[in-house]
Amino acid sequence: MRPYPIRPGRLIAKAILALAGFLAVFPLVWTALNALKNNVDIITRVPRLVFTPTLANISYILGRDSVLTGLYNSVVACGSAVLIGVALGLPAAYAVARYPNRFAGDIQFFVLSLRFLPPVAVAIPLMVIWLQVGLYDTLPALIVTYSLLTISVIMWLAIPAFQGVPKEVEEAAFVDGYGAYPVFWRIALPVAARSLAGAIAFSFVLVWNEFLIALMLSSSNAKTLPIVASELSQQGMNVPWGILNASVVLLSLPPLLFLGVLSGFLNSVFRQKKT
């Protein structure tokens, strides 16, 4: 490639990119700052960058029973659903990837088509069903419902991950006398582990962020963190903004912990395509 002289077009392009990068994170940074502000520093016509920080909002949030229950519910519901998704989704994905049959295409389409279902269309009948069997507003109901999401997403993403494992490695294990199951446990799973971690992290983020189904399937006991956070806001201006901002920050932290895993997953997907 020959070098290009500096041209105004390139400068403008760089400026647009820098602006986009700024827009990507600034609203979040601002929210985090507001979480550290007293109300007088938030309700100002001119935004204040310099202020006396306070931890009152954060300690208030962490001291509320409703928030702690929501956090507990979110962790249990999402954690269990992801575990179920792993236990059922990974083996099924491996079977589709490595033992192709004439239904493989249909199976993949079926799994994807679960994503087409409008959440309301699933949530309304499930609410009636859970009410009838007496499980409405309980964590088991939420876990079963979320499992539909996690199983299908993990399966969908794990199929290419298993296909990316070099066939020769598995064939060699077969020659060494391994059976079909040990090949899955000892060869395919460890080799594909990194891509699989990305798929699992993605499914966790998906159910952690889920709102509509949790809203419809809980009334008091099984509320997850997104529901609790949205309820804080409905008290309008009676709730200091700093507290709302603090709850947004708390809600957003867990998915952001997976930033590294997920961007690595993205890279590995496209590296596979290239080779």
Partner: peptide
């Protein structure tokens, strides 16, 4: 840039909605 651009999509929709609801506030929004 890739890392920065992935951050918004990881946020719960509820969080993203709040962040911008504050930002769009007519009197105090950024």
């Amino acid at each position: 840039y890739c890392l920065l651009f992935i951050i918004p999509v990881l946020l719960p929709r509820v969080s993203a909605a709040f962040v911008w609801k504050f930002a769009y506030h007519p009197l105090y929004g950024i």
